[in-house]
Simulated assay, not measured.
Amino acid sequence: MALSEAHRDSKTARPLVYRQSIWTRATHWIWAISLFFLLLSGLQIFNAHSTLYIGKQSGFGFDNSVLSMGAVRTPQGLEGRTTILGYQFDTTGVFGVSGTSENPQARGFPAALTIPSYRDLATGRVVHFFFAWVLVATLFVWLVASLVNGHLRRDLRPTGRDLAQLPRDVADHARLRFHHTGRYNVLQKLTYCIVFFVLFPLIVLTGLTMSPGMDAAWPWLLDVFGGRQTARTIHFVTMTLLVLFFLVHIIMVFAAGPINELRSMITGWYRTDPETKGDAGS
């Protein structure tokens, strides 16, 4: 009897709460898969012309590049050169030139980071466009479901009280001190709002701006983003920010407790820590 009571007390001390709906969980994993293929196929497309520009025009007659990955021949052999805002770096083996020393390959990103791994722009575009539409459809489903079930209003909308707790939450995260109450903390709310309502729409719209067909149907996209070349640069920067978000997200999952976090995103159930004041930590 004593063991049974102790077991029950331990469960009541950290109860399970239903934190993530089936819509949130399903769209979360579809996004993860889609963004993986979008990133690697996007790098395949980037390698076809590994230079980014600001402005409506580009080419040899213009000096408006902001990023360039290329190869130069030196007495020591082929070397990679990456230029960012006019500053040049030797990136041999990573960017510009990769592969083995016996068989160096001149390409922006190495083969291990592209889909397909070999040079195939057509296949890269097919993969990229397919998962782009999967991402858009999933975003639409998530938005409708979140409006209907109250997820947006209840879990993601930062309140005045949330914003007042921002300094404390920043300090807690810096010390890897997490609170498990089953609710999103203010850093999560702000970050997810930026991802869902700034980065995702931005990467979709800049992707559409690079499409000649969409430019014909919606010519205002070119005006909004300052031309196709600028849209391509914004698209690349937005992708980089999403990658950084993903890396920080994974770090926070492991720091806050990977078993609990993964259970939440697989089954929906999250073990809370009610005696600790604050919000959930990943």
Rank of each mutant, 00 (worst) to 15 (best):
R157K: 14
P158N: 03
T159M: 07
R161L: 10
D162Q: 01
L163I: 15
L163R: 09
L163H: 07
L163W: 10
A164H: 07
A164E: 05
Q165N: 11
Q165T: 11
L166M: 05
L166C: 03
P167N: 00
P167M: 06
P167K: 01
R168M: 08
R168F: 07
D169N: 03
V170E: 05
V170F: 07
V170R: 05
V170Y: 04
A171F: 06
A171E: 12
A171W: 13
A171C: 08
A171R: 15
A171K: 15
D172P: 04
D172S: 04
D172H: 07
H173N: 12
H173T: 10
H173G: 06
H173Q: 09
H173A: 14
H173I: 13
A174S: 06
A174E: 01
R175P: 03
R175I: 06
L176K: 13
L176H: 14
L176M: 14
R177T: 05
R177V: 04
R177W: 01
F178L: 04
F178E: 05
F178D: 03
H179F: 08
H179D: 06
H180D: 14
H180N: 11
H180A: 12
H180C: 02
H180V: 03
H180M: 09
T181P: 07
T181Q: 08
T181C: 04
G182M: 11
G182E: 14
G182V: 15
R183E: 07
R183F: 06
R183N: 06
Y184R: 09
Y184K: 10
N185M: 03
V186H: 02
V186R: 03
L187R: 02
L187S: 02
Q188H: 08
Q188D: 09
Q188Y: 12
K189M: 03
L190F: 08
Y192L: 14
Y192C: 08
C193A: 13
C193S: 09
C193T: 13
C193G: 14
C193D: 13
I194L: 11
I194P: 01
V195M: 07
F196I: 15
F196R: 01
F196D: 12
F196Q: 10
F197I: 11
F197Q: 10
F197C: 13
F197T: 09
V198Y: 07
V198E: 06
V198H: 05
L199A: 11
L199Y: 04
L199V: 05
L199D: 06
L199I: 00
F200H: 10
L202W: 09
I203C: 04
V204I: 15
V204L: 14
V204T: 15
V204S: 12
L205P: 10
L205Q: 08
L205V: 12
L205M: 14
T206F: 07
T206L: 09
G207P: 00
